[in-house]
Simulated assay, not measured.
Amino acid sequence: MGVTVAPTTVQGGPVAKKKVNFANLGVGAVMNMFEVTTLGQPFEVIKTHLAANRQDNMATAFKKIYQRGGIMGFYQGLIPWAWIEASTKGAVLIFAASEIEYLALTSGISPFAAGLLGGMGGGLAQAYTTMGFCTFMKTVEITRHKAVGTGAQQSTFAVAADIFKREGIRGINKGVNAVALRQCTNWGSRLGLSRLAEESIHKIRGTDHSKPLNAWEKIAASAIGGGLSIWNQPIEVIRVEMQSQLKTAGRPEKMNIANCARWIWQTNGLKGFYRGSVPRFGLGMWQTICMVAGGDALKKYVSERYGK
């Protein structure tokens, strides 16, 4: 989840600070909305179902999700929570990551390390400003019990109000620390690995940064960076379990990262921490392709069409 950060280095020259403008913020929001409304939310729903229902396999997950609401079952939590999240978190990532990357570069560290720090800082900023509540409510929508074939279902806003009444602001931000850890490692590795992949492509074809990668090369680099970022799947499973509304005998009432990890280990062993890896692999690739390769292309179009 996020957007590409424009480079803050000038080949052969001093570090130049990249201004954050409304056009770039709009690009981030548009690309995030596109990503989540197309393949993003179905991948998210399948991934979350498998992480919360760790006894299910992929076929069972598809069957249960379809039974809950047909094709629209794969878009649970899209409106309004995923849309609210998508339309805000891109702007936060752009601002935070570009500022951190600029400061890191001026301190003299390498562009790769600066990008890594920028991605990590941007991910943390996302989690604690816009994502905590929205991610929690998306998980609630996917994991809460929904009776099939009844019109007497509690609305998503009523669920949020009920949780706030019972548990206060902490209740509707449950698992935010796990979200922050996930986003920090997500975008640190996505941006870093995508840059490494781009460097590798440049070396293979014997060129430098003066000759930009073409569209397919950018897509390939983004897919590699996004796909390999699933190394932190255990953090995602812990986040889902902390926010899940499933009721299981023996499950700790008040979960933190430590006792949640212990519960997953006790009930599912090591493999429990990797449930949902396959759909998350697809999600990571799709998000990074949209937000890195797609974001670059859209920014270039906006710049050429409307001026800098």
Results as ranks from 00 to 15, higher is better:
Q76R: 15
A96Q: 02
W83P: 00
S107N: 10
T106R: 13
Q76Y: 06
L124H: 06
F112H: 13
P111M: 03
F112V: 15
M72H: 15
G115P: 00
F136P: 09
Y66Q: 14
G69A: 11
F133C: 14
T130K: 02
A82M: 13
I109K: 13
E99K: 06
I142H: 13
M137Q: 13
A91T: 05
G69V: 09
V140W: 08
K64I: 12
S87L: 06
A86S: 01
Q126P: 07
M131F: 08
F136R: 15
T88I: 00
S110F: 09
I94L: 12
W81R: 03
M137V: 07
Y75S: 07
W81A: 04
G123R: 01
A114K: 00
F74R: 01
H145E: 15
V92I: 10
K64F: 11
A97K: 02
F62C: 10
K138T: 10
G121Y: 01
M131S: 14
F74T: 05
K138R: 11
F136D: 12
F95W: 08
M72G: 13
A86F: 00
P80I: 04
G115L: 03
A104D: 09
W81C: 07
I109P: 07
A91N: 07
C134E: 09
M137P: 02
R68C: 07
A114P: 08
G122H: 04
T143A: 00
E85A: 07
S110C: 14
W83N: 08
I79C: 14
T143N: 03
Y128P: 07
T129S: 12
G90W: 00
R68N: 14
G73T: 09
W83S: 10
I84Y: 09
E101Q: 13
G122Y: 05
T88C: 03
E101P: 01
I65H: 01
P111K: 03
G123S: 00
W83H: 10
F112R: 12
F112Y: 15
G115R: 01
W83I: 07
Q67W: 12
A91H: 03
L105S: 08
T143Y: 07
I71L: 13
G121R: 03
Y66T: 12
S107R: 09
A86M: 00
K146V: 15
F95V: 09
T88Y: 02
A96M: 08
H145D: 14
L78K: 04
G122T: 09
Q126A: 05
M72V: 14
R68G: 13
L116Q: 06
T88K: 05
F95Y: 10
A82Y: 07
E85F: 06
M120I: 08
G73M: 05
S87Y: 02
R144W: 10
M137Y: 10
P111C: 04
S87M: 04
T139G: 08
M137D: 06
G73S: 07
W81L: 06
F62D: 06
I94C: 06
G69M: 08
T135M: 10
K146P: 14
G69H: 10
A91L: 07
T139A: 09
P111A: 03
A104E: 08
T106I: 13
G90D: 01
E99G: 03
E101S: 08
S110K: 13
G73P: 05
G115C: 03
L78W: 02
K64R: 14
